[in-house]
Simulated assay, not measured.
Amino acid sequence: MTPDDIHFRVPAVADAEAIARLHVASWREAYSAIVPASVLDAVDVADRIARWQGYLASEGVTFLAEAGGGAAGFIRAGVPDKPMVADADGHIFALYVLQRHHRRGIGRRLLALTAAEWLRRGGRALSVGVLTENRPALAFYRGAGASFAQADTYRWDGHDLPESIYVFRNLPDLARFA
Rank of each mutant, 00 (worst) to 15 (best):
P83K: 12
A77I: 03
A57H: 00
D44Y: 07
A25Q: 09
A20N: 03
G78F: 14
A50S: 13
A72S: 08
A37Y: 03
I75Y: 07
D41G: 06
A72C: 08
D81R: 15
I49N: 02
A42Q: 04
V45T: 14
E29D: 09
V35I: 15
G54A: 12
F74D: 00
G73F: 03
A57T: 09
S32N: 13
Y31K: 00
D44N: 15
E29M: 05
A50D: 14
A65R: 03
T62L: 03
R51G: 05
L40M: 12
P80S: 07
R76Y: 14
A71G: 06
P36H: 11
R51H: 10
L40C: 10
A30S: 15
D81F: 06
V79S: 12
R21E: 05
V35F: 05
S58Y: 00
G68H: 04
L56A: 10
A72F: 05
L40F: 07
V35E: 01
L22M: 11
A37H: 05
G78K: 13
R76I: 11
L56G: 07
A77K: 04
V61P: 06
G73C: 11
D81N: 14
G70V: 13
G70W: 01
E59N: 12
I19W: 04
I34R: 08
A67Q: 01
V45H: 07
G69R: 02
Y31C: 11
Q53D: 02
E59Y: 08
Q53C: 13
D81Q: 14
A71V: 05
P83D: 08
A33G: 10
P80R: 13
A33L: 10
A25T: 11
A50Q: 14
P83S: 06
G68T: 10
H23C: 01
D47M: 10
A71I: 04
V35C: 08
S26N: 01
E66I: 12
W52L: 00
D41E: 15
R48Q: 13
V79A: 15
A77Y: 00
A20S: 04
A37I: 01
Y31L: 07
G69M: 04
S58K: 09
I34L: 15
I75G: 01
G54R: 14
R28A: 06
V61R: 09
E29P: 01
L40P: 01
A33M: 11
H23N: 14
R76S: 14
A30I: 04
D44C: 04
L64P: 01
